[in-house]
Design a protein around this nucleic acid. Structure first.
Lengths: 197, 197, 197, 197
DNA sequence: TCCTAAGCGAGACGGTACGTCTTGTCTTCCA
DNA sequence: TGGAAGACAAGACGTACCGTCTCGCTTAGGA
């Protein structure tokens, strides 16, 4: 059994991931060279390509576990089984909380220009997530006027946009607060801003 | 007066822009080479760089006039001075209509991978636009619970996301229809989907 | 008659020639750009090419009159019709005197790296000149052991080399003196240096 | 120890050198492109620049070993310790013999226009060589009327010129014969041609 | 004095080669 | 035997010049 090998392999992967992150903190992601990464990681060029297809692959691996949490959130706090009267159709708080924790990493991404790659991946996960949640709420037999993908895109797009703003602005509110705002906008719509509450 | 020169310059710029678009319709944007562009445009390499910094710059110039329309829409159809009862806080129809016209171009962008550049620029214009419109509706003296940028990001993010989906899906609805959906979501919120109308 | 035109043309040619020389005094000839020349001369690009084929052509024109003197020396001082006893088979003094006059120009050439072009042209003229003179001395009927081209190359090569050294060393001797040395070497050979005179 | 690497590197260098020579045999040196060289050598562009600064550098490397022989000739045939009666002040035969061996290469250079680079380098080596030999013959205590550099330039200039002629003429005489002519001219001078032997 | 053709400046342009840069593959050696 | 080291092929990049060209302005010399 190649247990020892596995451990070495994991170590090399980690070295490369950390090298990338540390570089991202210094300069734009898309200006980072494979050469720089392997220099920083003290790893041979061929070793890099033995583990990752390319730079993006390495980056993706960096937040694979990250987004994995979105797909498989801890099964503990599933207390937001809400009623239609008080529906948390979108468990957006999870996203904000999670973004809050990985704040520094996000900062690096935005400043470094690596955000696009991440955003696209993130968007896809978020979309899937949102859609799943919506499916729990929209009665299957009753076809809504608005197709599911439209709702999903609307919500995920809005959420992501607000979240990025929040992060770029260096979290002017606690995650719970910004989530509350988002929930109001998402659930009640803009119209509610103009009508008496 | 350098009139003739200007005309030549404009012609060259146009040749390059058209060459890029025609290439985008054939292959992924990021696989397109400067050499291919200038070959298609029958233009010298140095001429290319005399007019544009790089490939992205050329791409950007392609929808500069495009987004310019967002900033300075035709002053004719400013009839959406709507009442709060039927508020078109967001003149999103304009966006859908406009996207509808430039449909092929958008298709090329999305398929070709050049969308990122465009989306970012587009987002910025859209944000500014949305914000301006909101300012007309939010009473200045009355501070909302939710800061303006949050609303703006929410709406622009949702709009863009829906629009991209709509384009990528090859416009399954007429622009008026998709706009209607968006308006409902944006104005009334998701909650409205579950309540009796 | 286009008299006035001619005058303008001559002026332009002169401007370009002077611009080149002044530039050569500043930097290596082969690093000088056509653009720099026409900028310095305040002349349009097309005008340059209307007058000269290229940079080398302009350079050549600069010492066209120069070498012309070698081919058609002033017919006044032809008093070196020497006897075989005191033969000035090679009228090398002319070359040294001429080089002496155009000293600054030569300096520029050597320092500027434009010398090669000049040297090659100069060598050709010098060779032809030397050969002509030799023909006056070598009796046609009597075939020498050594073919004429060998002698010509030997003398012209040696003369040019000595002259270049002399110019590069900033003329450590008066032209008459260096010529005397050359004449001794050329006429009597190196052997004479070791034998009692 | 990078033994294997060295071998690869040497192979690449050789491939490039040979590619250049083979190209020179086909077309003018200054019309040869770096691209053509690397195509012929089956070598990547960056590899070329990893080994040589530019085209001239590659050319120079081609006769580096060549001129090296001039500086360090085989220590075997040092039997030209000649008496003043039969002085070989200048071991010019070595040069002719050497040029004879590398005949094809020279041909390529002259026809291809790459000769200038080579000639200048060759001249310098030849000058140093000639000067060293002269120092063995000219008694130090006895100052000649003619400075050493003048003699050196005269001899080296003449020798190079004759040699180039000889090569360009496709070696009309065996190297020993042309050397004999040169020696007579150099040692006894032109005057001797006119006097009874 | 006006007219007109040539000379000219300005500079856009197509084209070519350059030297740099980065990628992903491949080979060799070492631990 | 797996990984470090790094040479390498491939090829796009942005730059630098070149020589051609088109365009109007200026200007001189004949009308």
């Amino acid at each position: 059994m190649a247990r020892k090998t596995d451990r070495r392999v994991q170590r090399t992967r980690k070295l490369l991931q950390e090298a990338l992150v540390s570089l991202i903190l210094e300069k734009r992601y898309d200006k980072i060279t494979v050469q720089e990464i392997i220099d920083r990681a003290n790893v041979g060029r061929s070793t890099f390509y033995a583990h990752f297809q390319d730079k993006e692959d390495l980056l993706a691996s960096n937040f694979a576990s990250y987004t994995a949490q979105w797909d498989h959130p801890d099964e503990t706090d599933h207390e937001h089984k809400v009623s239609p009267e008080s529906p948390h159709v979108l468990h957006s708080l999870d996203f904000f909380l999670h973004a809050n924790e990985a704040y520094e990493f996000h900062q690096a991404m935005f400043e470094g220009g690596g955000a696009e790659v991440m955003l696209e991946t993130g968007r896809q996960h978020m979309m899937a997530d949102v859609q799943n949640h919506l499916l729990d709420f929209l009665p299957e037999d009753e076809e809504s006027d608005i197709p599911l993908p439209v709702i999903t895109n609307f919500l995920a797009g809005g959420l992501l946009s607000v979240m990025v703003w929040w992060l770029k602005e260096k979290r002017p509110y606690p995650p719970e607060k910004i989530n509350e705002m988002f929930q109001q906008l998402a659930m009640r719509g803009v119209e509610s801003l103009f009508t008496a509450d």
